[in-house]
Amino acid sequence: MVVRENFENNLQELQNKMTEMNELTIAAFEKAFSAFKAQDVELALKVMEEDTVIDNLENEINQFVVWLMVKEQPVARDLRRIIGALKISSDIERIADFAVNIAKSTIKIGQINSLLNITNLEQMKEVSINMLNMAVTSFIDENIMLAKEVAELDDQVDNYYSETYKSITGYLREHPEETNQLVQLLFINRYLERTADHITNIAESAAYLIKGRIYDFNT
């Protein structure tokens, strides 16, 4: 019983690290989008600098997983939980990278008249943050319904992506002098769409833990 209790404590520590990484990533995403909306270059630079903390935490999780697998040699559900945490930390790190990419685009746009109002980028960000919280919670609480809801929200982001792409490219044809900003908005549109895809991957990892079979929510 003591051995199992120690193992459960290690699993809890792994989960805590993953939760911390998720919270840092959400904070980075919110900060990056705030910089984008306010055209705040200094804040954008801060997002880029702070990304190292998230990268280091992912490395820490990777090392902890290797140690845990060698030490405990987990099987069945325990193994699925550990592998799931490893995959999820990788997806969260990629999402944090997209926050950095948004910060970089903010710097490239600079302080000019913003064309954010012709896009659905803010709506996409809000849905994505909600999705990320739901996806990680679905894994921690082993809630399959939450995982499926994440997949449904991904369709909403995809629709926003298509609408925004059409809006930006249509505006570009009429206003070629705005090419620099519009290209960056297209990049941000893509970053947000890819963010939602990675969050859907997290939901798939949760579903695999719960049901023991592979789901593909991105189709």
Rank of each mutant, 00 (worst) to 15 (best):
E49D: 15
S34W: 03
D55E: 13
A32E: 06
D55S: 13
Q63L: 15
E58M: 09
L45C: 08
F33V: 09
L43M: 14
E42F: 07
Q39I: 03
V66H: 04
L45P: 02
F36L: 14
A32Y: 03
V53K: 15
I61P: 04
A38Q: 14
I54T: 01
V41F: 06
E58N: 13
L43Y: 04
K31E: 14
V65H: 04
A35L: 08
N59R: 08
N59A: 12
A35W: 00
N62R: 12
D40C: 07
V53P: 08
S34E: 13
V66G: 01
V65T: 12
Q63S: 15
N59G: 07
K31V: 05
D40N: 15
N59S: 10
N62V: 09
D55K: 09
E58L: 04
D40R: 00
A35G: 15
A32P: 07
D40I: 01
V41L: 10
S34L: 12
A32C: 10
M48H: 01
Q63T: 12
L57D: 04
M48Q: 12
I61K: 02
F64A: 10
F33D: 01
V41N: 05
T52E: 15
F64T: 08
L57T: 05
D51R: 00
K31T: 14
M48D: 04
E50V: 08
E42H: 09
V47S: 02
S34G: 13
D51I: 04
E58T: 06
V41W: 03
A32I: 04
I54G: 00
F33K: 02
K37P: 05
A32V: 07
V65A: 12
T52D: 13
A35V: 07
N62Q: 13
Q63M: 13
Q63C: 10
V65Y: 01
D55R: 09
V53C: 10
L45Y: 12
A44P: 00
V53Y: 12
I61T: 05
F36K: 06
E42Y: 07
N56M: 11
L57Q: 07
F36V: 08
N59V: 09
E60W: 03
E50T: 12
D51M: 00
T52Y: 10
D40M: 04
V66I: 13
L57I: 10
N62T: 11
I54L: 07
K31S: 14
D51H: 02
I61E: 00
I61Q: 03
A44R: 01
D40G: 04
